[in-house]
Design a protein around this nucleic acid. Structure first.
Length: 275
DNA sequence: CGATTCCCCTGATAGC
DNA sequence: TGCTATCAGGGGAATC
């Protein structure tokens, strides 16, 4: 479940390894992963491109190339973008192979085949469906308690649903949404517009805190997530509610509950987070 | 327009 | 033990 901290960690781990390298060749083993082009066109457009820099927007990883082209990569659930060690075997579920200079191979692998890759001109980036409607970056200035208050007051939906809505804020997924709600002591089913001014500030601080902690710990690894070098993160050891159903709350000792909210399983402490 | 539901996938797990 | 049913979940499309 790569969310903002995981994608940021992939970006940071890869950029120091592949910036400045040229793409020599591309193998597309699963064409449906490439949304914007046929496998042949994708390969033809990429061959000879130099990797200029890496970026991130929400959960999208951006690979800026020469001639103003950009690769837009979304890992969705189980996607991995990894630079292989020199003589490493091709990992299971490898769908796309980017052959770089110096015999390096960057691979996109994805067990569940939900991940997607687009290639487009840089000037079309802002208009790409998915990117176009993304809300503010939660770790940048446009996301602040005032924005949060304004948006919450005009929505009647449950707060958990809103946190997962990428047009409201970009990059939160199920793990960090549950963790932020617990840290802010807000029940996932609370109607967004009912949060008090104090709760809104607490929620803002909680979102920023759990995301920064996730980045600091190089992401949350349960089964699939690894960074650009294939290393797991350690944030799974820091979680207070996610995947802790039936275990005691670290704050009050109550048993963590799990419930489906807005179509997603949600873990919360019934004592700390009251409806 | 906002909110909800379905769908894509396959490994892990629960249930019998 | 071995089989089948269910679940997990991001985001886009379809639907209400």
């Amino acid at each position: 479940m790569p969310e903002l901290p995981e994608v940021e960690t992939v970006k940071r781990s890869l950029e120091k390894l592949i910036t400045g390298l040229t793409i020599i060749n591309v193998d597309v083993l699963m064409p449906k992963i490439i949304k914007s082009h046929t496998a042949q066109d994708f390969k033809k457009l990429l061959m000879g491109s130099e990797i200029k820099k890496l970026g991130r927007r929400g959960k999208y990883l951006l690979v800026y190339l020469s001639a103003n082209k950009v690769l837009v990569i979304h890992l969705r659930m189980t996607g991995r973008l990894v630079l292989l060690k020199d003589n490493a075997e091709l990992p299971k579920y490898t769908h796309v192979i980017f052959y770089l200079e110096n015999d390096k191979r960057l691979i996109f692998a994805d067990m569940r085949q939900f991940g997607r890759i687009d290639l487009l001109p840089e000037e079309e980036l802002a208009n790409m469906p998915g990117l176009k409607k993304l809300g503010p970056e939660p770790l940048e200035k446009k996301f602040n308690p005032e924005y949060l208050k304004k948006e919450l007051k005009r929505r009647r939906t449950k707060i958990k649903a809103l946190l997962l809505d990428q047009t409201f804020v970009a990059g939160l997924g199920n793990i960090y949404a549950d963790e932020a709600l617990h840290l802010a002591k807000v029940h996932p089913e609370r109607p967004a517009r009912d949060l008090t001014a104090e709760e809104i500030v607490n929620l803002y601080n909680a979102i920023v805190t759990v995301l920064r902690q996730g980045i600091k710990n190089r992401g949350t690894s349960f089964s699939d997530y690894v960074d650009g070098e294939g290393n797991t993160g350690s944030n799974q050891n820091m979680l207070k509610v996610y995947r802790r159903e039936g275990k005691p709350c670290h704050c009050c000792g109550s048993i963590i509950k799990r419930k489906k909210v807005a179509g997603r399983s949600s873990c919360f402490c019934p004592q700390c987070q009251q409806l």
